[in-house]
Design a protein around this nucleic acid. Structure first.
Lengths: 349, 349
DNA sequence: TTACTTTACACAATCGATTGTGCCACTTGT
DNA sequence: ACAAGTGGCACAATCGATTGTGTAAAGTAA
């Protein structure tokens, strides 16, 4: 910058203001500065700028881990949206450990990020460490694994709706005894998915049957076990809505192993749209969690708070609408259609 | 920091030096400063520090995208290793676009990162933009999709070895006509996998049969088509080594659809260890690409260059050894064992 | 013409931490 | 006892960009 100033015979002030389009710089001078900056391919030192302004162009992310399908996709959405808005993203993993989460928070604070996006670690019961962020007036948005309450900014998937539309879909296929493979009920996502399931049943006027709700850890193994248990009932179900794709997979495999036709004897639908759901045979109906949209929505909300710039901002909670992906595991067909329906689904990576 | 200095009645110099364990500060004073820093939970402003020192504690990553199995896992490995060494990670996506890659590079430069890790975009043919990084003396390490040559730091998987061990394994199972589903040969990874396959055949004294090598785009569809083509041969193969899991999947599905037993009539092995390979039936033998190790190795190499601190550093290329994961799709068994071998594989997410 | 704006730019302080140099006091060698 | 050495700390410059204030020159209104 000093070089530019020297070459044009003006002060650094003028350079800085010309580049940031300040009103007190004449258009002629602005042009000259811009041209020279291009020529020398001048790149401002973001550290210096951030130090002076007290705000960097960085957004901090804290996620439990970067693996599987969900978090990488959300991060992908976040990075894309942030980058479009001129921000960069610095990423931290808590490894499901509160202590690590706290450390990451400190680091992001000392890196002077413009805002922070957090998905809580599984071991985070006490959320007081986020008070420090708020007391500094630093924009903060939670996503997916959030702090409950209406005094925080948060973006989540509407899990209840996911359970509801899945169950409605199965009902629409003519299923009348719909089982549910539920997840650990102390986690809100699973509680809400189960609630959606119950809501749909009640709406259809069907009596709730406790024996049709099996509580699992969402593993494939327990999906197998659950299906075995269900098929041993005096009145086995004709469909199953699982709160996760892996348990749905296990259930589907066990059903077929016992000679049932999926979907005609047993319709199956899962949750999460894992990559494998398109390659099972039949392909699995599931709920897409809108991972990328979640990332984008989180960034949008964060930018709103950032742009409010300290002005009182009423925290907001955003609930994304899940998308039901109907595939062959749940679409009942006449016998004659079966052959074509079970054709291989192709998937180009 | 000024507060600490005032409270102890010393200069900021002393504070700074006490915290960085400078020799010219007495142990008594160091203790006092440390204790006070704890008490006030003092966090140094990393921007200011980085500005003054000309080096931040940030490592920049440029990847084509953050999706699928590979890149997220590598990033996971990178973040973990970097974090352990006291560095944080700022991540950029090139979206397979050179222009974006160039922009990302500029951004990382202006963010004053301590070093950069890059996996090239697919459209990067001209690599001159990396010259600017080298001319600034900024540590640079490529991984997976690298610039060829021995004047760059790079970490890759030994694809040739992957093809070699896969083919050796199939040979060891008694297969004698082993087909290969190859990928686009202008990409080094696919060329090398094919080379490993050929090396193993030659070593076993088997004649190379051009009709057994099918060139595909690695999609599931083309895997299906390739298997159809292979089975129409006068002398069909008894095994197939695919350079990717998706094409292996297509091949396996088509083989079973035509009534062949996998693995006894047709052994199948893939490449990449995609998540779905454990849930196919039979589970698919494949090559693990050591994603996390690659991230770790890249960080280790980068840290070496950083720690050399401008001293002449001879660029190095690291080749990771792939890991063959033997599963049921390639292990030939006596008929009586088949039932147990095809049992469900469980997978807890 | 005088007084008052407006325009266009420079001066110098500032963000927070780091570091070369200088200074003082005290120890050690001879 | 004097010179040299060393431990412990402060001063002030510095990294590079930003910004409140100051001040000419040019323009406008009276």
């Amino acid at each position: 910058m000093a070089d530019l100033a020297r070459e044009l015979g003006v002060s650094m002030t003028t350079i800085s203001r010309a580049l940031s389009d300040h009103h007190s710089i004449g258009p002629a001078m602005k042009q000259k500065v811009l041209k020279l900056a291009k020529k020398y391919n001048y790149q401002p030192n973001r550290l210096a700028s951030a130090l002076r302004k007290g705000k960097s162009q960085l957004i901090g992310i804290i996620v439990p881990y970067i693996e599987g399908r969900f978090f990488p996709s959300v991060v992908h959405g976040i990075e894309t949206a942030a980058s479009k808005a001129g921000y960069n993203v610095i990423i931290c993993q808590s490894n499901e450990d509160v202590a690590q989460e706290r450390r990451n928070l400190e680091i992001l604070l000392s890196a002077q990020v413009a805002g922070i996006l957090v998905s809580l670690s599984r071991t985070t019961l006490d959320v007081r460490h986020f008070e420090k962020v708020r007391s500094r007036g630093l924009p903060l948005v939670f996503f997916d694994r959030i702090v409950e309450g209406d005094n925080v900014n948060a973006v989540v998937l509407n899990d209840q709706e996911g359970g509801y539309v899945s169950t409605r879909h199965l009902l629409g296929q003519g299923c009348r005894r719909i089982a549910h493979l539920a997840g650990p009920q102390h986690l809100n996502i699973y509680k809400n998915r189960r609630q959606g399931y119950l809501d749909a049943l009640r709406e259809a006027g069907l009596a709730e049957d406790e024996s049709l709700v099996i509580y699992t850890d969402m593993s494939q193994d327990q999906g197998v076990a659950a299906m075995r248990q269900l098929l041993a009932l005096p009145e086995p179900p004709d469909a199953v809505f699982a709160a996760g794709d892996y348990s749905a997979l296990g259930a589907m495999q066990e059903a077929r192993r016992q000679g049932l036709q999926v979907p005609n004897d047993m319709a199956v639908s899962g949750f999460s749209n894992e990559a494998f759901t398109v390659i099972t045979e039949p392909a699995m109906t599931t709920i897409d969690q809108r991972c990328e949209e979640m990332g984008q929505a989180a960034v949008r909300l964060l930018l709103e708070v950032i742009d409010a710039d300290g002005a009182p901002f009423t925290p907001r909670q955003v609930a994304l609408r899940p998308e039901l992906l109907v595939r062959n595991s749940s679409v009942r067909q006449a016998e004659t259609e079966l052959s074509s329906a079970n054709l291989v689904r192709s998937f180009v990576p």
